[in-house]
Measured scan of single mutants.
Amino acid sequence: HNLTITQGKLFFHYNPKLCLSEIHKMEEVSGTKGRQERNDIALKTNGDQASCENELLKFSYIRTSFDKILLRWEPYWPPDFRDLLGFMLFYKEAPYQNVTEFDGQDACGSNSWTVVDIDPPLRSNDPKSQNHPGWLMRGLKPWTQYAIFVKTLVTFSDERRTYGAKSDIIYVQTDATNPSVPLDPISVSNSSSQIILKWKPPSDPNGNITHYLVFWERQAEDSELFELDYCLKGLKLPSRTWSPPFESEDSQKHNQSEYEDSAGECCSCPKTDSQILKELEESSFRKTFEDYLHNVVFVPRKTSSGTGAEDPRPSRKRRSLGDVGNVTVAVPTVAAFPNTSSTSVPTSPEEHRPFEKVVNKESLVISGLRHFTGYRIELQACNQDTPEERCSVAAYVSARTMPEAKADDIVGPVTHEIFENNVVHLMWQEPKEPNGLIVLYEVSYRRYGDEELHLCVSRKHFALERGCRLRGLSPGNYSVRIRATSLAGNGSWTEPTYFYVTDYLDVPSNIA
Rank of each mutant, 00 (worst) to 15 (best):
E227A: 08
A463E: 07
K236A: 13
D273T: 04
P413M: 09
K278R: 09
V331D: 13
D222A: 12
L225M: 10
P354L: 12
M402V: 15
Y448H: 11
F285E: 15
R218V: 03
N477C: 09
A395F: 08
R390W: 05
P403V: 06
H454Y: 15
D409I: 12
A488M: 10
F337P: 13
F246A: 03
Q219V: 06
D311M: 13
A381I: 01
L464G: 12
L228E: 15
T415L: 13
N435I: 00
R400T: 05
L293A: 14
L453A: 03
T210Q: 06
A220K: 06
E362D: 15
G322N: 04
I377P: 00
T386W: 12
Y448C: 11
L293Q: 11
T343C: 04
L473N: 02
G325V: 12
V296M: 09
L235N: 06
S367M: 03
Y445F: 04
Y478D: 00
G374I: 12
E350G: 14
W493A: 00
D409V: 12
H425K: 07
R353G: 15
N435D: 01
P238W: 14
A335N: 12
I366G: 00
S223W: 12
G234I: 13
E290C: 04
S243V: 07
S268G: 08
L369E: 01
H454V: 05
G325N: 12
L440Y: 12
V299Y: 12
R240Q: 04
A309Q: 11
P238M: 06
S363L: 10
S398Y: 13
V345W: 11
D450P: 01
R218F: 03
T373S: 10
L213A: 14
V299R: 14
E265Q: 14
G476H: 00
A381P: 00
T303R: 11
C456W: 01
N490T: 11
N206S: 05
D261P: 13
V359W: 02
Q384K: 01
I418R: 06
S344W: 12
R400V: 10
D291M: 15
V480F: 07
H371K: 03
Y259N: 12
D250N: 14
G322Q: 06
Q380C: 11
D503N: 06
R218N: 12
E465Q: 15
R240K: 15
D409R: 14
S367T: 07
N295T: 08
M427P: 01
K432Y: 10
Y259V: 13
S268Y: 04
A336C: 14
N421E: 14
P403F: 07
D450S: 14
E247Y: 13
R318H: 08
N435T: 00
I276D: 09
G472Q: 03
K361Y: 13
V296K: 13
F372Q: 04
S243A: 13
D323S: 04
I410V: 15
D250K: 10
T241A: 12
D506Q: 15
Q384H: 06
G489N: 14
A395W: 13
G449H: 01
R313V: 12
F289C: 03
R301K: 13
V501A: 04
S458M: 06
T241C: 11
S283P: 08
C382R: 00
V329K: 07
G476A: 02
L505W: 04
L505K: 09
E249P: 03
G412R: 12
L464M: 09
F419T: 15
M427F: 14
H211T: 05
E378T: 09
D273L: 08
T307D: 15
G234M: 11
V296G: 11
T502V: 12
H254K: 10
S392D: 02
C391T: 03
G325D: 15
Y375E: 00
S458K: 14
A407K: 04
T288C: 09
A263Q: 08
H461C: 10
R286H: 07
R483M: 14
G306T: 11
F298T: 11
E388M: 09
F289M: 05
G476M: 00
I418V: 09
Q380F: 15
W493R: 05
V327F: 07
D222F: 12
D409P: 01
S479H: 03
S239Y: 14
R376T: 11
E388S: 09
F289K: 04
K357F: 13
G412Q: 11
G368Q: 08
V393T: 15
G476E: 00
C456A: 02
F499A: 03
F246W: 12
A336D: 15
P496F: 07
N339Q: 11
V365R: 13
N477S: 05
S341V: 13
D291F: 12
T307M: 13
G412F: 10
V214I: 15
K233N: 14
Y478T: 01
T340L: 09
C468W: 12
S223M: 12
F419L: 09
E227W: 10
D506Y: 07
V334W: 13
D385Y: 07
G472M: 10
P244V: 10
S262Y: 11
I209K: 13
L280V: 13
F355Q: 07
N477H: 07
G264M: 12
S320F: 10
D291H: 12
V358K: 12
T494S: 11
G308H: 06
A395N: 10
S479T: 15
L487H: 00
A463W: 10
Q429T: 04
P354D: 15
K432Q: 05
S243R: 12
I276W: 07
V397L: 14
V443D: 01
V296L: 06
T340Y: 12
A381D: 00
K460G: 05
S283E: 14
I482Q: 02
G467F: 04
E249K: 13
R353Q: 15
A399G: 12
Y441K: 00
K357H: 03
G264D: 15
L228G: 14
L237A: 06
P338I: 11
V393W: 13
I418Y: 06
Q252F: 14
L455G: 08
G234N: 08
S509R: 07
D385S: 02
N422G: 06
N326I: 08
S509P: 14
E279L: 14
E260F: 08
F298G: 06
I276H: 13
G472C: 03
D503T: 05
G374N: 13
I209T: 13
E442N: 05
L369Y: 01
R313T: 12
I366F: 13
R316H: 07
L470K: 01
R286F: 13
F337Y: 12
Y500M: 05
G368F: 08
D204L: 12
V359E: 10
E224V: 15
S363E: 07
E247A: 10
V214D: 00
E281D: 09
C468R: 03
G489C: 02
I366D: 00
W242P: 13
D323V: 07
E452F: 14
K302R: 10
Y375G: 01
V214Q: 00
A309S: 13
N208P: 10
L277F: 09
V501L: 06
P431E: 00
N510W: 07
S251F: 10
P245I: 14
L232N: 12
C456F: 02
G368L: 06
N490H: 00
A399M: 13
L235Y: 06
K406I: 13
E356A: 13
S444Y: 14
R301H: 15
S268M: 09
G325F: 12
E442C: 13
D408K: 00
F372M: 10
G207T: 02
C266Q: 11
Y212V: 11
P332D: 09
S320H: 13
L321Q: 15
T333P: 03
S458D: 04
V443E: 00
E465M: 10
E249M: 04
F298I: 11
F298V: 07
T272W: 05
S341C: 09
D222W: 14
A395D: 08
T307K: 14
I410P: 05
S320G: 12
R240V: 12
E310N: 10
E221F: 10
G412L: 10
N255E: 07
E451Q: 15
N339G: 08
Y375N: 00
E430R: 04
Y498A: 13
V359T: 12
Y478V: 01
S257W: 13
S257V: 06
T485N: 12
Y504D: 12
G467W: 02
V331M: 08
V327S: 12
V214N: 01
I366V: 11
N422Q: 13
E465L: 12
N383S: 04
V327R: 12
F499R: 01
L487Y: 12
S367D: 07
A394V: 06
Y292S: 08
F285P: 11
T272H: 13
V358P: 06
